[in-house]
Design a binder for these strands. Structure first.
Lengths: 344, 344
DNA sequence: TTGTAAGCGTTATCAC
DNA sequence: GTGATAACGCTTACAA
């Protein structure tokens, strides 16, 4: 038991000695101040101060069986929309005295399972996951450890765990109806990769449903799946144009795809939205400002993080909480127009 | 010692009992497999499997005096450029079996000090900070705990700690020279808030230096400081235009400011870059695609994260490492042009 | 190669 | 209000 060097920092016993009390009293002073006589507490705080005492989290966690750490696992921390969720989550946890352990899985279920296991080993008190689809072994692990867990960016009524999110399918229906109401009937979609990404799949489903309401369909020639990148959007648009069934409106699975598609239009001197309407999801303010052409749906990314934190903190405090929190999305109409044929 | 319920999960002793070995052997099998006879290891792994044993990180950390956790504190997790650094950091740490504890301080030194203390209490093995300016108490704390620490987005030769970053001042010089070489002499800057943000201050300094090289200055009428937001950029541009000393080129402290300025130009029907050149820092790919008008400097955000991880992992492994890693920035010329007067 | 056992620094249950 | 003290679950000399 030695590796990390023989410790030069003060421990609880040192504080106790200096303050002429037992370690029990010091511990109380630090965690339940009201249960200690003010005079004693003052003496102890003084000792803590002069020794520069810093509690040992691991020892504390071992004895108290709670680490005051929450784990979060996200598809990709460098996706700004998720970064926004993580940021809000961290701030809320910090305000309550909890630390955040983060990890990413890169849309790989196997990596997710491995990382969740690591998070459990590292002793988190609760877990924040993203989406509803997780390996069975993950749920077993959480059950075995009785770990409070909340699913974010998810809203599955049949989910085995509490959710905080919004309805991706409904959001897609809103966007699609908007486009259809403008008079478009040649609608195409550049979707995110739906395999292993239920959010992308739900958005695609919503588009299909809204089209079906008007007796329209989304044939293979009007659908491409691309990774959520700018180049994905460019390629997607290229393929749609070359596919023969040239659309008057393109619905993109997220804003990176939409901006990529827009960039491709600029290169090809296709006027947006006059000649081609482009809409997206995951509204990023930055995209909005520079592309007045882009109608989008804004997702409550930060709220998801804040509410996930609130949910878990409440449960950790032994309170009852709603198992499902549905947030609303907002359609932001910017430049979308009727299709060229009907214009004027 | 009971709060977190009386534990239903298997512990090391359970595995040992089932495998008919001592806890020491199980521990070895889990951490130093090569020091155990294969047959024994197999039996133990079998027991681990059937019991669904998951190690208890806190106990492990207490006994071994190392937590396999690294802490990082960042100004704002929702700034995409920092999110990129954190993402790379997390991936590199994960690959080495370390977890990442993240926190943000919102550009508040006091919050930073508090959070770093919390990170230390939570038992991180090493720390990643951002920038070179930190409270004295922070350095004392790190010294007292002998915590390996690396400063990112920093490159101070006189820094008391190892750095991984690039030269913000030099980057600003590059951009400014580029603008001057195009023939501009009416140059203005929309800087980030320099108070408490050395990176913003260095960029401003670099602009001033490059101007001075050509005998130019940056009078108060040509400088505004705004927070790193789109609306900051809009306001900044507005103030510069209303200030009387109308510039032909505006250098913005980061891309959010640049895009905000650009958006304001769009609203005012000011042609960019024909009438007004705008340049920025912190190149975000997304901005590049939608604004072919914007010349920027790309920062190696992800590399910083990856190298910070490599640095700390090496030190944790007892290796010697370079105390200073300087990365290069890249000027990306997109749409900048000569000032209107000289255009022909 | 494996076992024994002494911690690691706290917390929480009792007594007092 | 405060003090002893037995855990908490694991690692690692050291012994065998």
């Amino acid at each position: 038991m030695k590796p990390g060097s023989p410790r030069k920092t003060a421990k609880l016993a040192d504080v106790a000695r200096l303050a002429r009390v037992s370690t029990a009293t010091v511990s109380r002073t630090l965690t339940l101040p009201h249960k200690v006589k003010p005079a004693t507490a003052a003496r102890i705080n003084q000792a803590v101060e002069t020794l520069g005492y810093v509690a040992h989290g691991a020892a504390r966690a071992l004895a108290s069986r709670r680490s005051r750490k929450v784990g979060a696992i996200i598809p990709a921390l460098d996706n700004p929309i998720f970064a926004s969720t993580v940021h809000a989550l961290q701030k809320a946890l910090d305000a309550a005295g909890y630390m955040l352990l983060v990890a990413s899985h890169g849309y790989d279920a196997q990596v997710e399972a491995r990382v969740i296991r690591a998070l459990v080993e590292h002793g988190v008190d609760a877990l924040v996951l993203l989406g509803t689809t997780h390996r069975a072994c993950v749920l077993e692990l959480l059950a075995a450890h009785q770990l409070p867990c909340v699913l974010t960016w998810a809203l599955d009524a049949g989910a085995p765990l509490p959710c905080v999110g919004f309805d991706n399918r409904a959001a897609a229906v809103i966007v699609t109806r908007h486009v259809l109401d403008l008079g478009h009937d040649a609608v195409a979609m550049i979707s995110g990769v739906t395999a292993g990404n239920e959010r992308a799949a739900e958005r695609l489903r919503g588009v299909r449903e809204a089209l079906a309401e008007r007796g329209l369909a989304l044939p293979a020639s009007r659908l491409v799946e691309k990774p959520y990148t700018l180049s994905g959007g460019r390629e997607g648009l290229r393929e749609l144009l070359e596919g023969g069934a040239r659309p008057t409106a393109v619905i993109c699975g997220n804003d990176a795809l939409a901006l990529g598609a827009l960039a491709e239009c600029l290169d090809r001197r296709i006027a947006v939205p006059a000649e081609l309407s482009i809409t997206g999801f995951d509204d990023m303010e930055i995209a909005a400002v520079v592309t007045p052409a882009l109608t989008t749906v804004r997702f409550p990314a930060a709220e998801i993080g804040a509410l996930a934190a609130r949910h878990l903190l409440a449960r950790l405090a032994g309170q009852e909480v709603a198992p499902r929190t549905e947030l609303q999305v907002e359609l932001i109409v910017r430049g979308s127009t009727a299709p060229p044929a009907r214009q004027n």
